[in-house]
Nucleic acid binder design. Structure first.
Lengths: 254, 254
DNA sequence: TTTTCAATGCGTAAATTTTACACAAAGAAA
DNA sequence: TTTCTTTGTGTAAAATTTACGCATTGAAAA
């Protein structure tokens, strides 16, 4: 490098992309949004490239909006994936052949399937609000239960694993739920969310005590009716207090 | 994008770099390694590009070795900087002019000073072991006390801030010190390290109790002599136990 | 209509963890 | 020899976290 700058520069990496692990919570399970590539059975995370006049965060937001129809979702960068072999974990060659049947021979020449560095984001969204929308490379976009996620393209299984770790980390230091639950919810539902994310059980009374101590929840005069048991109260986050707690951080110490 | 893939692709970002915040600990202060650009008074973090056959981590290690002479330093990726304006925080234009005096007009054309995404790493090194070494763009490399760091080029001040936050976060969840202290050290020295990183004071007795509870330290039969006070014992990390604690994590709960 | 069953609402005591705190001894410098 | 700074050491109080049981509700089943 020291002797020929331009020569060195030609030997350096010239691509960045970005991939999002979109978490939703439904029927007591964490879900992630996956895309099926055109003419194949291969799935991957939603992702894309950064435009020249766009920050990485803007790009993540744009891509998220395109895939979910939602505008203001919680988005957090958690890791940048820069392994040399991150594109050869899985049978991409066959994938490329299948894709060329759909898109035409040589279509991807020098465009995709070169090695790139990818910035990993995770998003938290309200499951019911999402309109899963495939992109130009894919013809299906749908939720998968975390437990059922198949072998994904590239290093996307590792991405989900790391995203989950980052989500757990965040859950231990910040309030969570405003982004994943509907406006009104019961205390047991909130507890189930925490239990699902952290993969542990908590004592009902201690959980309620701790969450109420954050002073971000308001108990409503409504109850959820319909189930074969005592009707639980509905709660709602007090937005300003919740946001203050997000900024300050809280310790979920169970 | 949906209609012309290649056209879209031309509008996307094509550069990645990487910058390292190298932390050392000396005379009770945290230090960072900075580089002064040739023919200027402008300083920046050490950084560089990723080679085509290299992972991001490998690149960080290579760059670190080049700047410090050290081989196995603790390195951790903490954030990827992707703001649109990350190259226009500071007066780069004048910088470019000054650099062209040194390097020749047009030398950097299309090579540096375009917008790039940069992966931020921080490194922890043993201060006394480092041989600060400038790179091809710079003619000085030296330690700066964190408190004295000047206005840096690009978004490097923000990088250091975030690196410090990440270091604090790590210090709260993992043992630290093996990477920053010499082989043998006293308990008060270790305490000062923690106090410096976390910017707080701790009670001597409680600190010792907590650190010893991690079961990663061995008290030697030696003492540090020379100071005008009672000679403190020397301690050393038990490597295997330290590494186990790094993997498992410990909570620094003071 | 009555009974059953699963889930909810609610408070206190025990255990653990964290914090606060003081005095005697060492060793160089004055 | 005295002074001064820093070290080594343990216990009690406070705060936090964990454990735990019973009466009530409401739909479903009998």
């Amino acid at each position: 490098m020291e002797h020929n700058l331009k020569e060195f520069f030609d030997k350096t990496l010239k691509e960045v992309s970005l991939d999002c692990t979109v978490f939703g919570f439904h029927e007591g399970e964490l879900k992630v949004l996956l895309l099926r590539w055109k003419g194949t059975d291969e799935w991957s995370l939603p992702g894309g490239h950064i435009l020249l006049d766009e920050s990485a965060d803007d790009a993540a937001n744009r891509i998220l909006t395109q895939r979910t129809g939602l505008n203001d979702v919680y988005l957090q960068q958690f890791y940048t994936f820069g392994n040399v072999n991150r594109y050869v974990y899985h049978p991409e060659k066959e994938l490329l052949q299948k894709l060329e049947v759909t898109f035409g021979k040589g279509f991807f020449e020098g465009i995709i399937f070169r090695r790139v560095v990818s910035i990993g984001y995770f998003a938290l969204v309200e499951f019911a609000q999402v309109q899963p929308t495939p992109d130009w490379f894919t013809d299906e976009c749908r939720w998968w239960s975390l437990a059922d996620v198949p072998n994904l393209l590239f290093d996307h299984n590792e991405m989900i694993e790391r995203a989950l770790k980052a989500l757990r980390q965040r859950t231990r230091n910040h309030p969570i739920g405003y982004n994943l639950l509907p406006e009104k919810f019961t205390m047991p539902e909130l507890q189930r969310l925490y239990e699902t994310i952290l993969d542990r059980q908590f004592d009902r009374r201690n959980f309620q005590k701790l969450l109420m101590s954050y002073d971000i929840l308001e108990r409503l005069d409504e109850k959820r009716v319909g189930a074969a048991n005592k009707s639980p109260y509905l709660y709602r986050f007090v937005k300003e207090k919740y946001e203050a707690a997000v900024l300050e951080g809280v310790s979920f110490s169970m």
